[in-house]
Write a protein that binds this DNA or RNA. Structure first.
Length: 410
RNA sequence: GGAGGGGUUCCCGAGCGGCCAAAGGGGGCAGACUGUAAAUCUGUUGCUUUAUGCUUCGAUGGUUCGAAUCCGUCUCCCUCCA
């Protein structure tokens, strides 16, 4: 009988764990385990980066364990220095509270919170109430500054500077674990591998203070083969909020994943059985495109629902397959009156977001990268007029993969 | 608190009175090659009404025909001392 741990291991989630033998035994007993993962509310949406972690939680929940999703309203006020070479921008309390609300809603889509099958907490509830001296006396003596400084998450900051505020982050996170342990009997903390030292802090704190077992595990971080964190683009993160990253863009992100990462992504980001994952991952040459499409579809389905995933898939197929059905690609609505005198193509490209500025749009045209429908645009000063539309639609293509359509609405 | 060093375009980093919209690298974008992949090669990379145009080199005030470059003030960061 496979334990939840076996499943996570088989799918390649696990990077490190604190007490492997004990953890293995614990899972083998089959009793529900209360575990937690924290999400700091640094932005107004979760990202693709969080998604993998959430999948880990979902697998554990499916196996009967109880996740505690912790939203870091309090820790965000401090700012995690892990993996950063500069200090985080300070957010206002209102922004943080706002972000927390959004995180809660989004998390609710991926985990089953009914009938106490999962819990949602906000560490601001207790961290903000801590008294400085009380905290120092309660947990301060458990932390060795020498050891903290040697922790990985602070190393990168030793040269450029680390503020006392950030230095305390580890203590805050450790305190969270202690609090959850006391209140909800939470005995395990998971997180991305960059959280390893923060997690260790909590595990050791509980073991010392409560004299009880506590465990930590970290998940592998998804990176491209160059080692760049996956889920990031030049424009920023790939968001789970459809208003920040449209389902179509989201789909395309995974559709364009590099060959070498297909199997890993299928395994970590979908619920497909492992035999299927391995079969798809072993496809070679252009056949691997089939696997990429399945990956993109499955991930989009989990995040945005089956309907949106289907639309994105069809939209992509028609665009790249040369079909004419462009119903599901990003659209800009315009009225006929807007085109009375025609509109500069440069202007339209900026409005659709295909180019950030007119200069950039001009450059794209000069370099031969812009198409109107089937026509390659040669003239930088091209004016778009009603006659360019077909069935009230006009497709603008920039480069090979960026499409946007303008639709006339009257 | 004292003494030094520094803040340059998305990032790193040169420039130290005109030849600077600012070297080089990274990243991005476009083109070629392809499989909506990777690698490679080429071009490009402040903005606009493309011009002997406009706005940029931490902020501000000055010197100068002319300042990223010199001077004053402010601000932030780093190192050493206390």
């Amino acid at each position: 009988m496979k334990t939840a741990l076996d499943i996570l291991k088989e799918r390649g989630f696990i990077e490190q764990m604190t007490h492997e033998e004990e953890i293995t035994k614990l899972f083998a007993e089959g009793k529900p385990i209360n575990f937690y993962i924290g999400f700091d509310a640094t932005a107004d949406s979760l990202t693709a980066g969080h998604f993998m972690t959430i999948m880990g939680m979902a697998h554990l929940q499916r196996a009967g364990h109880r996740p505690i999703a912790l939203v870091g309203g309090g820790t965000t006020k401090v700012g995690d220095p892990s993996g950063r070479t500069d200090m985080r921008k300070m957010l206002t309390d209102e922004q943080i509270a706002h972000n927390c609300e959004i995180f809660k809603q989004q998390l609710g889509k991926f985990l089953d919170f009914s009938e106490g099958k999962a819990l949602m907490v906000n560490n601001d509830d207790w961290l903000s109430k801590l008294g400085y001296v009380d905290l120092l006396r309660e947990v301060g003596f458990c932390f060795s500054v020498n050891r903290m400084l040697s922790a990985d998450c602070y190393k990168s900051r030793m040269e450029v500077g680390l503020t006392f505020l950030e230095f305390n982050y580890m203590i805050m996170q450790s305190y969270d674990f202690l609090e959850l342990n006391r209140k909800y009997d939470c005995i395990m903390q998971l997180g991305g591998n960059d959280q390893w030292s923060n997690i260790l802090g909590g595990v050791e704190l509980i073991r010392r203070l409560e004299n009880k077992p506590a465990f930590g595990m970290t998940f592998k971080l998804l990176t491209t083969s160059e080692g760049v964190k996956m889920g990031k683009t030049a424009k920023g993160a790939v968001w789970l909020d459809p208003n920040k990253t449209s389902p179509f863009e989201f789909f395309q992100y995974w559709r364009n994943i590099e060959d070498a990462k297909v199997e890993e992504c299928l395994s970590l980001l979908t619920f497909l059985p492992m035999e299927e994952v391995r079969r798809l991952g072993s496809l070679e040459g252009s056949q691997i495109n089939e696997a990429k499409e399945i990956l993109a579809f499955e991930v989009t389905k989990i995040v945005h629902g089956e309907e949106e995933a289907q639309k994105a898939k069809e939209g992509a197929r028609s665009l790249f397959g040369g079909g004419a059905d462009s119903a599901n690609i990003p659209t800009l609505e315009k009225t006929r009156a807007d085109f009375a005198d025609g509109i500069e193509l440069l202007q339209l490209m900026v409005e659709t977001g295909l180019a950030p500025t007119k200069t950039e749009a001009r450059r794209n045209i000069e370099q031969g990268g812009v198409k109107l429908g089937e026509e390659k645009v040669e003239d930088v000063k091209r004016i778009v007029v009603l006659a360019d539309f077909e069935n009230n639609k006009l497709l603008i293509q920039k480069g090979k993969k960026k499409f946007h359509q303008v639709v006339l609405t009257d």
